[in-house]
Simulated assay, not measured.
Amino acid sequence: MDTNRLSKAITDILNNQVKKEAEAAQIYLSYATWADSEGYAGVANLLFRHSGEERDHMMKVIDYIQERGGRAKVTALSAPPKDPKNLQECFEKIFQHEVDNTNAIYEIVSLSHDEKDWATWNFGQWFVKEQIEEETLVMDLLDKLKIAGGAKATSESLLYLDSKIGQQDDDADLARDASVESPQ
């Protein structure tokens, strides 16, 4: 008996997301090693943790495909992009990567809606929220770097920023959680 509850199109787009999440883990890992070699231990710490988080996302998608009777596929990964020139470029590249991943998640949610695959649509909502957090987190990093002086930040500012980034939580404050008593 065939127990697969996923269409071929849904299976294909989810398997593509498996690859995207694995590549995201590699990108974060690559940038973490770059940051560490540049002396940004705090930034490296954050990026190493995010590499693991992206692998967790990959596992969620693999598990979902398998749980719904489909067959997850593990494929070859693209090489991570070249090292950034500075912290500004690092954060900008990470932000662009997260925006691209958000668009891929939207494609999954859109296709599942079109196919009336409500289980996959519901599964995708967790990733929609996660991408809001991911983009917000990187925008906050970019804002902090801008306040520190951006690409022209002094060594002292970068040292302070790096220490603060290393101590910050991995989750960003979201508008959906704000209230009058706790706006951020």
Rank of each mutant, 00 (worst) to 15 (best):
S51G: 10
H57D: 00
K60L: 08
L47T: 03
G69E: 00
H50Q: 13
G69L: 03
Q96R: 13
K60S: 07
Y106H: 13
L87N: 02
S51R: 01
S51L: 01
K93I: 10
K73N: 12
S51I: 01
A22D: 09
S37R: 13
Q26L: 14
A76G: 12
I94V: 15
A44N: 00
L47E: 01
V74W: 11
F95H: 13
D114A: 13
I105A: 08
H113P: 00
T102Y: 05
G42M: 05
H113W: 09
A22H: 13
D100S: 13
Q88H: 11
G52K: 03
S110K: 15
P80C: 04
I62R: 02
L46M: 11
S112T: 08
D114L: 12
D100A: 14
K85F: 11
K85G: 11
H50D: 07
L87S: 00
R49V: 08
G42R: 03
R49D: 13
D114T: 12
E67A: 14
L29Y: 05
M58Q: 15
D83S: 14
I27A: 08
V74S: 12
K116Q: 14
V109Q: 03
A44L: 02
Y106R: 12
A76K: 13
E54M: 04
S37W: 05
N103L: 10
I108M: 09
E38S: 12
D56M: 13
D56E: 15
I105V: 15
G39T: 08
E92R: 10
G52Q: 06
I65W: 00
E107F: 01
Y28Q: 01
D100V: 08
E53K: 09
G70A: 02
D83V: 11
L87F: 02
D36Y: 10
P80R: 03
I65G: 01
N86Q: 06
K116D: 12
N103T: 06
Y31M: 10
Y40I: 06
K60W: 01
A32E: 03
